[in-house]
Design a binder for these strands. Structure first.
Lengths: 123, 123
DNA sequence: CTGTATCCAAGGGGATACTG
DNA sequence: CAGTATCCCCTTGGATACAG
């Protein structure tokens, strides 16, 4: 019931808990293009349900990564934009993306090799 | 059924799918210290079940991030070590950790502020 | 348009016990 | 010691319908 220095005290775990879910990275990356409305984000991502979009946006807003602005107009208008902290996160995500782009071939090669191995095959 | 440029084609998503789970980052970070045995890893992390350790290790091995060496001895001995690719990933994870260490205070402040807001309170 | 509420299926991951 | 096999719970997230 008590780990060494890991569990919740590990910063990388906390960071991953924030962006490790299915949509956060996508939403943040989309907002990197600039201020967008709820429907615009949904349209650009495609496949995300309104529930998940709102849920993701709320989480990002709560963590100070996204700023939500509501305009009290007749047709409700709500705009979302990255905060300075959010823009910072985007930079990190882009590094992650870059790493992935460079190394994915290696990973796939390793995987193909692993799956083809006669010894420790077995998925 | 077809997103713009995201969904599975997004590299960052692929990278996150690899390290976004509960244990991969912890295991990889632990192995950054050097070659370790199954039990040693479990001991250093604390709280991980043998099932999850093996499962995580298998995934990392399959993706070419970790190298598994089995010694055919009387008391079974299996050692795990990072590959070049794995060491590369560790570098990225450390960047992530660094970012988290620096910005977690901001995130927590934003969260506390959000939770205290009279307007859009409501968890 | 923006967002909420409900229902529900799938899977991750924990506990435990057992095998080589 | 290393790893496997079950069982099972609980969370994530998708579909759908509805409200402000």
């Amino acid at each position: 019931m008590d780990a060494d220095l890991f569990d919740a005290s590990c910063p990388s775990r906390q960071a991953l808990d924030r962006i490790g879910d299915r949509w956060s990275v996508l939403v943040v990356s989309t907002l990197a293009a600039g201020t967008l409305r709820h429907g615009e984000i949904a349209g650009r991502i495609g496949g995300i349900t309104p529930k998940m979009l709102t849920q993701t946006l709320r989480g990002l807003e709560r963590d100070g990564l996204v700023r939500r602005t509501v305009y009290a107009e007749v047709p409700p208008r709500v705009e979302y934009a990255l905060t300075g902290l959010g823009r910072d996160l985007v930079g990190l995500v882009q590094q992650l993306t870059r790493w992935a782009e460079v190394h994915i071939p290696d990973v796939e090669a390793a995987r193909a090799d692993y799956d083809a191995r006669p010894t420790a095959s077995r998925k």
